[in-house]
Design a binder for these strands. Structure first.
Length: 423
DNA sequence: TCTGGGGTCCTAGGACCC
DNA sequence: TCTGGGGTCCTAGGACCC
C-alpha cells in the first residue's frame, strides 16, 4: 500500500502557524516578485478571492474589500516547516519519498496483505493527528494500492464531502465510489487538455477512465496515460524508485524584481542560476553533458517578445560550477542586447547522467574539482544558500525579488523568533 | 509607475550533414 | 549539377505538476 500526505494550501497554512492573529482571516500568498496568487487558505477560497495564479494587481482591490491578509512567499519558513512535516510523516512507514515541498509518499512494502495493527483508517488518522499536534499544519492523508490511487484517496480526503481529511481505498467499493465522484481532470496526470480530449470520448469521471481499455488509451494518448489506467485499477506501474526518479534536466529560472538592462547584472543572475542548478545536480550525484542558457523580455511588454537561448555542449560531462559559469560568460555576448528590458533569465542542465557512469575523454581530461565543490556544498548547506559563492555571481545584485509583504523569518532568524507574552 | 510563478518531461519538426 | 533518403542534433512549444 501507498499513502500520500499533503498539506492543505501549504503556504497559507504556514503563514498561520506562527501568527495566531490571522488564523480566522482570509490569507493569500503571492508567487515570487509578488506576481500572482499561489496559495489561499480555506476561508479565502470560500470568499472567492483565492484563485490560483491570477495576477495580484488584478485582484488587489477585491482582496482589500474582504480585508484579506496578503503575504509574499516566505520560502525559508515553508522549507523549515516542510522539513518538520517530512520528519513526522516518515515515522509512519518503512519507506518515504518527498514529492514536493508539501507532499510525501509513504510506501509500506511489497507485501500487499500487510495491514497495520490499528487498521488503515486509524493509521491515516494517526498521521494526520501527529502532524497537527507537532507541526500545526493541516494535512490530508490518502491511502491506496498504487501511487495514483493514493493520490485519488488524498483528493477525496480533502475535497469530497464526508471524508474530513482521511480516505482509504482498500476495497472495490471504496475504489469505485471515490473514482466515480472525481472528474477525470482530478486524476493525477490528467490535465486540462487531455481531460478535454477524454471528455470528447465520453470519459468524464475517474471511474470511467479506470474502466477504459488500456490499449485504446495508449493508441489515442500515450503510454503514460495507459499506465494511469492500470494504476487506477490497482496495478502498480510507477515503481517506487520512479515516484521520485533522478532528474534528467534541472532548471533554475526566475523573473527579476525589476527589468534589467545592465549586462553585468544579467551575467550575475545567470551565474547565480548556474550555481543553484549545479548544487541540485551534485545533490543527486549527477553530471550534465549540456546546458541551455537563456534570457527573455516580458511577453507582456509592448516592444515585442525577445528570447535568446544558447546551447552549450561540454567536452566532458561535468558537475563543476566553474564549468557552468564559464559557459554562461561565453554565452552572454550572444544573449545580451542593449535595447532589451530583460524580464527573466535562467539556465537548464541537460542530458544528465549518474556520475558513476561518466565517459572520460582521453584528449579532454576533466577539469572538475569534486573536493572543492563538496566543500562549497557543505558550507552552503550548513550556513544557507549563497554563503559561499563564485565571484562570477557578483557582489551587488540589483535584481532581487520583490517581496513587499514578507512575514518574519520565524524559524531562521534569531531576531524574528516569535515572542509570547505571559500574564 | 506598473505590475503577469517555477520546474520537468516529451515530441514534432527544422537545420544540418552524409 | 541536382535530387532525395535518412540520420542526428537542437529548438520550440505542449503538457503536466505544485
Amino acid at each position: 500500500m501507498y499513502a500520500l500526505c499533503d498539506v492543505n494550501s501549504m503556504y497559507a497554512s504556514c503563514e498561520k502557524v506562527f501568527d495566531p492573529s490571522i488564523r480566522k482571516r482570509p490569507v493569500v500568498v503571492l508567487t515570487n516578485n509578488d506576481g500572482c496568487i499561489c496559495a489561499a487558505c480555506g476561508i479565502a477560497k470560500k470568499m472567492g478571492v483565492g484563485k490560483k495564479f491570477v495576477p495580484f494587481f488584478e485582484v488587489r482591490e477585491q482582496l482589500e474589500a474582504v480585508n484579506a491578509v496578503v503575504r509574499s512567499s516566505n520560502y525559508e519558513l515553508y522549507a523549515e516547516l516542510s522539513e518538520r512535516l517530512m520528519t513526522v510523516c516518515s515515522r509512519f512507514a518503512p519507506h518515504s519519498h518527498i514529492y514536493s515541498i508539501d507532499e510525501c509518499f509513504l510506501y509500506y512494502g511489497l507485501h500487499s496483505a500487510y495491514v497495520p495493527a490499528e487498521g488503515w483508517q486509524q493509521h491515516a488518522s494517526n498521521i494526520r493527528r501527529s502532524v497537527w499536534r507537532e507541526v500545526r499544519l493541516p494535512i490530508g492523508v490518502g491511502i491506496g494500492a498504487t501511487p495514483t490511487l493514493a493520490k485519488a484517496a488524498n483528493h477525496a480526503a480533502k475535497k469530497i464531502e464526508g471524508y474530513r481529511g482521511v480516505a482509504v481505498i482498500d476495497s472495490e467499493g471504496a475504489r469505485k465510489s471515490i473514482l466515480a465522484k472525481m472528474s477525470v481532470t482530478d486524476v493525477w496526470g490528467i490535465g486540462r487538455r487531455i481531460g478535454a480530449r477524454l471528455n470528447d470520448l465520453g470519459i468524464m469521471t475517474g471511474l470511467q477512465l479506470a474502466n477504459a481499455k488500456p490499449g485504446i488509451i495508449r493508441k489515442q494518448f500515450s503510454i503514460l496515460i495507459e499506465s494511469t489506467v492500470y494504476e487506477l485499477n490497482g496495478v502498480v506501474k510507477l515503481n517506487w524508485d520512479e515516484v521520485r526518479a533522478a532528474k534528467k534536466e534541472i532548471y533554475s529560472t526566475r523573473s527579476f524584481g525589476q527589468r534589467i538592462m545592465d549586462p553585468d547584472q544579467l551575467k550575475f543572475a545567470l551565474a547565480t542560476h548556474a550555481e543553484i542548478a549545479a548544487a541540485k545536480l551534485r545533490k543527486q550525484n549527477g553530471t550534465a553533458k549540456a546546458m541551455t542558457i537563456f534570457a527573455t523580455s516580458s511577453p507582456h511588454d509592448a516592444n515585442g517578445y525577445y528570447k535568446k537561448s544558447v546551447f552549450h555542449k561540454f567536452a566532458v560531462p561535468t558537475s563543476d560550477s566553474r564549468m557552468f559559469l564559464a559557459a554562461c560568460s561565453a554565452a552572454l555576448s550572444s544573449i545580451y542586447c542593449k535595447e532589451v528590458r530583460f524580464y527573466r533569465c535562467g539556465v537548464g542542465l541537460l542530458d544528465i547522467a549518474d556520475n558513476k557512469s561518466v565517459q572520460f575523454d582521453l584528449f579532454n581530461p576533466s577539469q572538475d574539482d569534486p573536493k572543492l565543490m563538496q566543500c562549497l556544498d557543505l558550507i552552503n548547506s550548513k550556513y544557507g544558500r549563497g554563503t559561499l559563492h563564485l565571484a562570477g555571481q557578483g557582489i551587488e545584485q540589483k535584481f532581487a525579488m520583490r517581496r513587499e509583504f514578507l512575514s518574519p523569518h520565524y524559524t531562521t532568524r534569531w531576531s524574528d523568533l516569535p515572542r509570547i507574552k505571559c500574564g
